[in-house]
Design a protein around this nucleic acid. Sequence first.
DNA 1: TCGCGCAGTCAACGGTTGTTGGCCTACATT
DNA 2: AATGTAGGCCAACAACCGTTGACTGCGCGA
Lengths: 190, 190
Amino acid sequence: MVPETVRTRRSDATRTAILRAAQVRFAADGYDRATIRAIAAEARIDPSMVMRYFGSKAGLFAAAVEVDLRLPDVSGVLRMELGRVLVTHFLERWEGDPADDALLMLLRSAATDDAARERMQYTFTSQLVPVVASVVGDSREASQRAGLIASQLLGLALTRHILRLPPVVALGRAVLVEQIGPTIQRYLTG
Amino acid sequence: MVPETVRTRRSDATRTAILRAAQVRFAADGYDRATIRAIAAEARIDPSMVMRYFGSKAGLFAAAVEVDLRLPDVSGVLRMELGRVLVTHFLERWEGDPADDALLMLLRSAATDDAARERMQYTFTSQLVPVVASVVGDSREASQRAGLIASQLLGLALTRHILRLPPVVALGRAVLVEQIGPTIQRYLTG
DNA sequence: TCGCGCAGTCAACGGTTGTTGGCCTACATT
DNA sequence: AATGTAGGCCAACAACCGTTGACTGCGCGA
């Protein structure tokens, strides 16, 4: 018989079902309020299955969080367009498939959970900083600029999708790109 | 005898002790993880006293959250200095007495708790929007500009004090004022 | 001096959580 | 057909949560 590593094991379906359910619940409720029972119910399996596959709630969270910002390749982008491109990119990410935006799930959880907070730091360092570094030369300067950029972009995610401040929610994407784009641009090349 | 409303009742000391302890625990742990038992322990009283004085955990939270941004009177401030003044003000608030920064306590809780989120909306509408409105004329425009300002200022609080992204933490106050001040300035008068 | 009310203590309740182990079923191999 | 094993379910555990109510002691007014 074909080795197991190649065959699609019967349990793989359940595994991905749990993972998908976990992403949905963690994103909607944050780490604390998303219970294993609720995740299992959403995946239509028994709570004990979660433990069998992922060991613990923390293990499940670690497996479910796979934040890939999918930052675009900026090498071909006009230097003066970078700010707008970045803002547009994040707005599209956040307003796409709700089960997809792992960043919001991480953000909600990181407010209280320490493991999520460290994961957030790692995502920032390993994904956003390099992109900024590819634009500015100096590495130390790049992380500083990336920090400022994160403060504005995460602040936008916070006020628009988590706190849902009415005026921020009401603003159209085009307006946001027009207003916040220049801010990012200045933090990047200023 | 002097009426009760004037006399300092013996229970007032306990009441304020609970309130202070609640602010500390809620700020450090957020609504969910801050347990009544932990708050009572910090105030060195029995958990049931919390219920006696504030009815429920939600009641305690509502009483403990008294967010006064203490926004400065901007009528005498030079128009072109407004951005820097606001950033300076918030940085000083957040880095003062840890038991004092109710905004961070609210921010941590609002990520998951719905009552805290609505309180955050109210704070924004009743305190930040009027200040912005006193600078720009139009009311609708004021709330939009206030939304943009909140996205940057709350994003700063988030990345610096909650997520604690290393580069953002490392930046000095003067640098932050110099970099973020102009952003606020443009959102305010742009 | 005698009650009466207030501040505070103590133990317990019911509910929910993460987690565990035993049991059953269905399928693949011999 | 017999059998071993992986996948799945059920019931229960211990811990912790918010919350309740009965009890104790103390100080003030009559």
